[in-house]
């Protein structure tokens, strides 16, 4: 048994245990480099991530309404917003005010998924 401090009780938990054993077996073959390839800033945008646990923004050091539009035009801030200069020109058309309308902003997913 791979896990020493945690015991699986139900069937679902046993799957975790088996999975841990499997991972141990294949660990040597894992490619550890390049596990987090950078895909630039056009993959996804996740506004929920930029709010605090209560859904607010005022307590954050970079409130979402302040930095959101600082992202795509010069890309100085590594936030996850689509590239609006060349590929997604209409991305924020439904969002007149980021502070009010940010939930209307779209997600960008790879075609074919």
């Amino acid at each position: 048994m791979t896990m020493k401090h945690v015991r699986a009780l139900n069937k679902k938990a046993r799957l975790f245990e088996e999975n841990a054993e499997q991972r141990k077996k294949t660990r040597d073959e894992d490619v550890v480099a390049l596990q987090a390839p950078s895909l630039g800033c056009s993959l996804i945008f996740d506004p929920g991530w930029e709010t605090d646990s209560a859904g607010g923004v005022t307590g954050l050091c970079q409130p979402v309404e302040a930095d959101l539009y600082g992202c795509y035009d010069d890309c100085w801030w590594p936030a996850q917003v689509p590239d609006q200069l060349t590929n997604h020109l209409t991305w924020s058309d439904s969002c007149a005010s980021a502070e009010r309308d940010w939930r209307k902003l779209d997600l960008i997913y790879p075609e074919g998924t």
Binding site: K4, H5, V6, R7, A8, L9, N10, K12, A13, L15, F16
Partner: peptide, 11 residues
């Protein structure tokens, strides 16, 4: 994930 585990004292 609806999983149930027992823990040892350290866990």
């Amino acid at each position: 994930v609806t999983a149930i585990f027992g823990l040892d004292e350290l866990g």
